[in-house]
Design a binder for these strands. Structure first.
Lengths: 332, 332
DNA sequence: ACCTATAATGAAATCGATTCCAAAATTGTT
DNA sequence: AACAATTTTGGAATCGATTTCATTATAGGT
């Protein structure tokens, strides 16, 4: 069913039908004839043809490192929800942490003429950075602060800093940090730095704090913690870069018979649902993942609209940092 | 950069460039001239225009009840991966379990001219069923067996049946079942039926088995289990329709001082990562979520290709059931 | 009744690709 | 060298919408 066929049936020109759909002067009589015909035929405009002509497509590319992950899927849910509300659809790309795939998606999405791209950041390599800069449509980064790009991210530094302060305040002063790869600036560098700075601020020596690098899995947290307890049996507390790692670490602590929180304090980041099923329940920093996604989408759409309306006024770069909330559950 | 501009620069007609890209007779000389021009300009064909002309778009609509969910995101990861491999992209719609949103997405995706749709099933209402039947492109259902539609789903019935058999074999013979809404046929009806049939097969009375209906959350599992223990203190085992519910239920058992697995056996479904961080670790039925997504995508693409090639031979309906694997971890 | 301003209308151009078709160029055969 | 068969080529039509433009109809004012 095309606009032409509708026009024919209603006895008007296709231009009239287009005006009916998009607003334009049209006599009341034709208006109602067209309305009837559209209802009868169940006509829906072909968005591809529409895009072809107008150059505006209501599709946004969303590139994530791994859709099967608690935090990533929460952000994605926020993005999809906001986009949907504003009449856009989500073109999803999950890269499995492969840089090549991210580049590929960036390409294929632009070929699909998306109106904009949201990239969930992990490790920023020069190649990816170049590709992002060459992106022909507005682009927003979530989860990381990439200088030069509009970003929406979390206060990773202070979230972990505050967790560590809490840990020290509770008397766990021989602490370790279970982190993730430093290639991930937000989850790797900032969280570690927050932990160490809290230690320094408490008048202790941050260089004495053992730092382990884990994968993003419970298994990895378990293994690293086991190693840590063997090498540093004097430890009585650990802050972990993610809840998953912390939950894995708790298993190692159980095996060693360390009582939580009396003999050993532990905390994670992300406020995953599994925190409240652990024994004891895991103290964690809540990050506003859903809101991060929603804000990123809203920011991107404002950039797109500004572009389409050819607003020429100056436009400040937006780096949007979201807060956090420490959820005490008794593991510290 | 359009095909016309490339043609101009290379000194050939746009038809020649098109033939270069899609295969067609072309002299070696022009071929290399075009190649050079494309490399220099970095030209990429506009997929919207391509779709406009050919009617073939390499986008697949994927409609899920809630992308922020362990199982859903795993299936989605499988789908996206398979589609990507075959040169398609994923148009994602997350409905938050709203039927209206599902209908809306079905519509908007068809307006976007998607080549096909994968619908992750939950509650099949007549309205949704009608909309699905009216879908103008091939459609595959995952996670549920909807009669009349090609489906890829799990053997929910036998997975839970086997879990319950295990439970009874371990001497937990005063059992309950913590299920989910019956509107969800696979997770609600089939899992419950599997549990009750196992009880019957063991020579016990299935009508004596208390059945609770939970939400898909740990909190709900906790509350329902607490209620259950108050009403039926004699119970010594429970099979749960999901891991999340089981992990919540374990909290209630801990509060009541029930030793797992000695005094009370518990099991879940889904083999979530959190199973192995629980105390004791949770016995669960592994379902092949990723594979389910991959198979659904593969099935859909085969339907699409068959349609595009106008294969006329008879075409059996495909209802594909995937197996499961009981992962014993010591909670039964 | 006449002229102007505004509203209504449809034919045709356009977006960027693919593809049909007829013409031109090349190849092969005798 | 003449002719047939095949390959190469670009012009033009096409997909389904929007939008410009020139034209016609209507309304308003004196």
């Amino acid at each position: 069913m095309t606009i032409k066929e509708v026009a024919e049936l209603a006895g008007v020109s296709s231009a009239a039908v287009s005006r009916y759909l998009n607003g334009g002067s049209l006599s009341e009589e034709k208006r109602s004839r067209i309305r009837r015909t559209i209802e009868e035929t169940g006509y829906h405009p072909n968005l591809v043809a529409q895009t072809m002509r107008t150059g505006h497509i209501r599709q946004i590319g969303v590139i994530v490192p791994k859709i099967h992950s608690d935090s990533v899927s929460q952000v994605t849910a926020g993005i999809a929800r906001q986009l949907r509300q504003r009449g856009y659809v989500t073109l999803l790309g999950s890269t499995d942490h492969e840089e090549g795939d991210a580049l590929g998606y960036l390409d294929i999405m632009q070929n699909n003429q998306v109106a904009g791209v949201i990239l969930m950041g992990t490790c920023l390599t020069p190649i990816l950075s170049d590709a992002m800069r060459e992106c022909r449509v507005p682009l927003v980064v979530t989860g990381q602060n990439y200088p030069g790009f509009p970003c929406v991210y979390h206060d990773d530094y202070n979230a972990v800093r505050e967790l560590m302060k809490l840990m020290l305040a509770r008397g766990h002063d021989r602490v370790a940090f279970l982190g993730v790869t430093e290639k991930d600036v937000a989850a790797g560098q900032h969280r570690r730095q927050g932990a160490l700075d809290a230690v320094r601020e408490a008048g202790l020596d941050p260089n004495a704090v053992p730092v382990m690098v884990c994968e993003f899995t419970a298994e990895s947290g378990y293994l690293r913690m086991k190693e840590l307890l063997k090498r540093h049996p004097e430890l009585n507390g650990a802050v972990c870069a993610t809840d998953t790692i912390a939950l894995g670490a708790m298993k190692a602590l159980r095996e060693q018979g360390r009582k939580i929180p009396e003999e050993f304090g532990i905390a994670g980041v992300g406020d995953s649902w599994a925190c409240s099923t652990a024994v004891p329940e895991l103290t964690s920093a809540h990050l506003y993942f859903r809101e991060c996604g929603e804000d990123a989408a809203a920011l991107l759409l404002s950039l797109i609209e500004r572009q389409e309306e050819e607003v020429t006024g100056e436009m400040p770069m937006r780096q949007m940092m979201l807060g956090y909330k420490i959820i005490e559950r008794g593991s510290v």
